[in-house]
Structures are given as C-alpha cells and as structure tokens.
Amino acid sequence: MERGSSKHGPRIDENMSQEVSGLVQGPGAAGSRVEESRQPEPAGEDQPEPKTVTAGASRGGNPQGMSADDVEGRSRLGRFITMTALPGDREALLANARENQAPADIIAALERLPDGTRYQTISEVWAALGHTNETTRW
C-alpha cells in the first residue's frame, strides 16, 4: 500500500509550500512577509498600535520595586549559591560560592554578611547585602 496525500497532487503541494515559505524561512518579524497580502492589517481606529520592544530592553519586565540591574545582580548572585547551601550562614554561603568558582566581587560581598545569621533564600541574602527585593501589592 502506497502512503501519500490523497487530497492533493504534487503540483498543488509544491504551490502550497511556496505560499508559506516566507513564514517558515523568514525571521518571524511582522515585516518579513513575502507577499504584500500577508502583511498584518493595521489596528482599528479605537485600537492601540502594536508596540515593539527596543533592542536591549527587558522583555519580561521587572518585578515592582526592582530595577533591571537589581534583577540581574540577584540572578548573578544566585548562579554561584546553589540550593544546597540554603538555609545557611555566611560561612556556608562562602564555601558554596567558592565551590562554584564565584568571582571575587561576589566573594567580597558575601564576606560582608553578618556572622551568625541564617539565610533561607537568595532574596534574603540579597537584602542583607543592602539591595532591594520586589515589593508586593496587597
């Protein structure tokens, strides 16, 4: 038994594949349509225009109360302190960061933490280092 398309012939299949080639091979931007008929329709009179994110802008947004630099800094700190170190005190965090080959600025920051305090999360460590975490809206 031969398997194949019973709905179209080879000529129609080829034409259909050419119709979508711009969508499949293009970079995906709205302006990359091959044919003018494939351009998206403009927004209606009472509809806002679609916005594009500028290069380098954060696509996910930032939590309320944190800047993009705060988010990146806390994330960077979290890359060098694994969950096995938490909950932990300054010495446990330092040992874990050194194990994970943290850069000198991360080690220096962790050395400034007060001795004898146990931290449950990276956010608690971040706050103890003098930075802000997200604020909640209730």
Rank of each mutant, 00 (worst) to 15 (best):
N96A: 13
Y119W: 06
G116E: 03
L110F: 03
N100L: 09
A97R: 11
D105K: 09
T121L: 07
I107P: 04
A108I: 00
T121W: 08
L110N: 06
P103Y: 04
N100S: 10
S123G: 15
I122D: 03
T117E: 13
I122M: 10
Q101K: 14
A95K: 15
N100G: 08
N100I: 01
Q101E: 15
N96P: 05
A127N: 06
A97M: 11
A104F: 07
R118N: 11
T117Q: 14
A102E: 04
D115A: 13
R98W: 03
A104T: 12
I106R: 09
A104G: 01
D115H: 08
L110K: 07
N96C: 12
A97G: 11
E124Y: 00
A95I: 03
N96R: 11
N100D: 07
E111A: 11
G116C: 02
L113V: 10
A127C: 02
I107A: 05
A102D: 01
A95R: 14
D105A: 10
A97S: 12
S123P: 00
Q120C: 00
R98C: 00
N96K: 11
L113R: 11
R112I: 00
A95Q: 14
R98E: 15
N100Q: 13
A97W: 07
R98I: 10
A104V: 12
